[in-house]
Design a protein around this nucleic acid. Sequence first.
DNA 1: GTCTATAATGAGATAGAC
DNA 2: GTCTATCTCATTATAGAC
Lengths: 237, 237
Amino acid sequence: MPQTGAALRRSDAHPTKIRILDAAEELFAARGYHGVSIREITQMANVEVALAHYHFGSKEELFRHVVTRRIDEHCSRLIEDLDRAQAAAPNGIAPVEEIVRAFCRFSFAKTSSADAGWKRYLQLLARTSQLPMYEPVLAPINRPYGIIVVRYSEALRAALPTIQPGNLATAFYMLQGIVSRLLAETEMLERQSHGLCSASDFDSHLERLVPFVAAGFYALAGRPELISARNGSEPPT
Amino acid sequence: MPQTGAALRRSDAHPTKIRILDAAEELFAARGYHGVSIREITQMANVEVALAHYHFGSKEELFRHVVTRRIDEHCSRLIEDLDRAQAAAPNGIAPVEEIVRAFCRFSFAKTSSADAGWKRYLQLLARTSQLPMYEPVLAPINRPYGIIVVRYSEALRAALPTIQPGNLATAFYMLQGIVSRLLAETEMLERQSHGLCSASDFDSHLERLVPFVAAGFYALAGRPELISARNGSEPPT
DNA sequence: GTCTATAATGAGATAGAC
DNA sequence: GTCTATCTCATTATAGAC
């Protein structure tokens, strides 16, 4: 047993600080920043209220730690997947489909996996990203994520040399809107499809998203004739 | 002057109940349900706190009234615009582009207009639609909106007879994600495009969204060859 | 319908013993 | 690092005069 006696208060396997972060992640994802109290968080984490303030100072700082905790790995993986797509292309210019796939791969894989922490973190970002946020909490997200936007935009521009800058920015923004809505996992998709589509079936989502978004990019690049060549003849069934 | 003496407390033009609803709409749109107190709302409305309880009973009921107030007109207009698109088609089968345009027209027009109330209502729906909501507040939205989903899905199925039901449902869900993100008007688009795209320029949004989404639908219907025929040769610049 | 006053609770945060 | 106790303030909601 690696833990010392002081490290664990109950039978839980993680130290206090991590348990608070995990509980906060889950509750913030479910009800947003204002919908959750520190008391609820510490109760779920099985620690005293004062420990949240000892470890994080304030509620806002705790929230900042939650959204910051995984952002660097998240962005690193997004870059790695883009690098892989470009390395696989003969001339280093990855096709639109592979760029779009790279943008989704890590998030979709983590959300589908048994790793509940990552799933909740991605839900938290997706669900709160459309609400106005405080600058102190927005900045630590936008610094690494801004690099993602630049790298993916450059890759898409290379794949679509004819596309106008405004069309590229808007198309990428629309892609983010789609991904965000899927990661948020609302009940709407299941209800609207009468149970035909499951919100958690990200393999199906990806096989539909890639041709949908790629076709959109080609259309906005003035290259609709490329769509059938890239897609193959049949869409997912 | 139509108002009686008892109707107005200050110089504002609207009766108390409306003023509370307007203030609540604005604040709920900005910070979500839990991020706003009744005190803030009544303060912005220039009325006493007790009047919110007199008119609406509880905070949750007030929120329900805010999201319910405009939903019927909203849905009626969505149906009207779809009807118009279908009436304009020779055989009653509107092309995908016109269906997508009809789905956006009213919301984009209201958000671009001087009508701040409608703009905030649409922001409220867009920003909170990805957070889990109480069933009592979800039901009054989903009843009329469910009809919209059915009608638009039928129209799209008529325009795309080869599309698989799962592809149709997911594609429509992706369309909703795009529209929702645009209506939410985050600062992300302006930042990511380095000021090239304005979040409030819904004319540009529409001219980019329609070919993007229509191409996506055609791709998922296995009919990519239709895209160039419908779009014309050049995308928006 | 509107106001004042107040109840009842829960919130974020801190001090100090251990 | 952890716990108990407490401070201070804001919250939803209601009672009752006008």
